[in-house]
């Protein structure tokens, strides 16, 4: 995708100057306005943006007014590419008005999310006029805003495709197919990491990692050969190690990160003292 390759195989674009709220910033052609704003510390609220993924445009919170030569249009900053002479204004009256309604919708959709409450409060929205979604057995605890980041991280970054969207429209939810434990889940936790509202629950319990939000999917953990601790999902560890320097794999595979660190340090010391080891 030439339109959404930020972060992947990055080739620096032509330098351009973009004006945001009256100040000029340097940027690279091809960057999105949202990326520039994040880098420069200009606050634009967003929920579905992740630098390593293509622009998605689902949360509709990053609206700005932008254009050239005095023309202005309301557009999402995550899908808007910078160009020489582009002028952007973040908190115009129109943007503020619509954003407030969107935040009210979010407050109703994810009434248990502190992140949403804080974000809404930051923009002066303290309560919602809309009926709050109340579900007693929601695996995402009333915090999910369906931004899609977990699904996309699972599919596009990890290549697992363990979770997906179920149903459509207001009935949309995210979970495993047929709400059954997933055999495709690596238990990598990328979904947990990218979730903007901390809705996904994952817990390590003994020799297993339990993806509580994903239909109770259980993933076996690898045990450290040295200290016996469970430290990473088995299959994911094997996959990762198989892609590494084979010598490293032979000697250090099967150790948890902490034991691995100790081993490497020990060998370095031995090598300097002229002892055994071939890592000098």
């Amino acid at each position: 995708m030439i339109y959404g390759s930020a972060g992947k195989d990055h080739v620096p674009g032509k330098p351009v100057r973009v004006t945001i709220n009256g100040r000029q910033y340097r940027a690279e052609e091809g960057e999105t306005v949202l990326s520039v704003a994040i880098r420069e510390g200009i606050p634009i609220p967003h929920l579905c943006h992740e630098e390593s993924l293509d622009p998605y445009g689902a949360c509709r919170l990053c609206f700005v007014e932008a254009g050239k030569h005095g023309k202005r249009e309301m557009v999402t900053a995550c899908t808007l590419r910078v160009a020489e002479g582009l002028e952007v204004t973040t908190d115009t009256p129109t943007v503020t008005k619509h954003r407030a309604i969107l935040l009210e919708l979010y407050l109703a959709e994810a009434p248990k999310s502190e992140v949403i409450k804080e974000m809404a409060a930051r923009y002066g929205v303290m309560k919602t006029r809309f009926l709050k979604k109340m579900e007693t057995d929601d695996p995402l605890g009333g915090k999910c805003v369906l931004c899609g980041l977990c699904v996309r991280a699972c599919t596009e970054i990890m290549g697992a495709g363990a979770i997906g969207f179920i149903n459509r429209g207001p009935y949309t939810e995210v979970n495993t197919p047929f709400l059954e434990p997933s055999a495709d889940c690596y238990g990598c936790g990328a979904c947990v990491k990218v979730c903007p509202t901390h809705a996904i629950v994952m817990e390590d319990s003994g020799s297993e990692r339990v993806m509580k939000s994903w239909s109770g999917t259980r993933v076996p953990l690898a045990q450290c050969d040295c200290c016996g601790r469970y430290y990473a999902p088995k299959e994911l560890a094997a996959r990762t190690l198989s892609a590494l320097d084979p010598q490293l794999e032979r000697e250090l595979a099967g150790l948890c990160p902490s034991c691995r660190g100790k081993q490497i340090a020990e060998r370095e010391i031995l090598a300097r003292q002229g002892g055994a080891g071939n890592h000098a």
């Binding site: 445009g57 689902a58 949360c59 109703a108 809309f130 429209g169 207001p170 949309t172």
Partner: peptide, 21 residues
């Protein structure tokens, strides 16, 4: 429209639902 919304973006998914309500 609510039933046919794909559910991707919040104004359509949530906004139409609340319009209907």
């Amino acid at each position: 429209a609510t039933g046919e919304s794909c559910g991707k973006c919040v104004p359509c998914r949530e906004g139409l639902k609340h319009t209907l309500l």
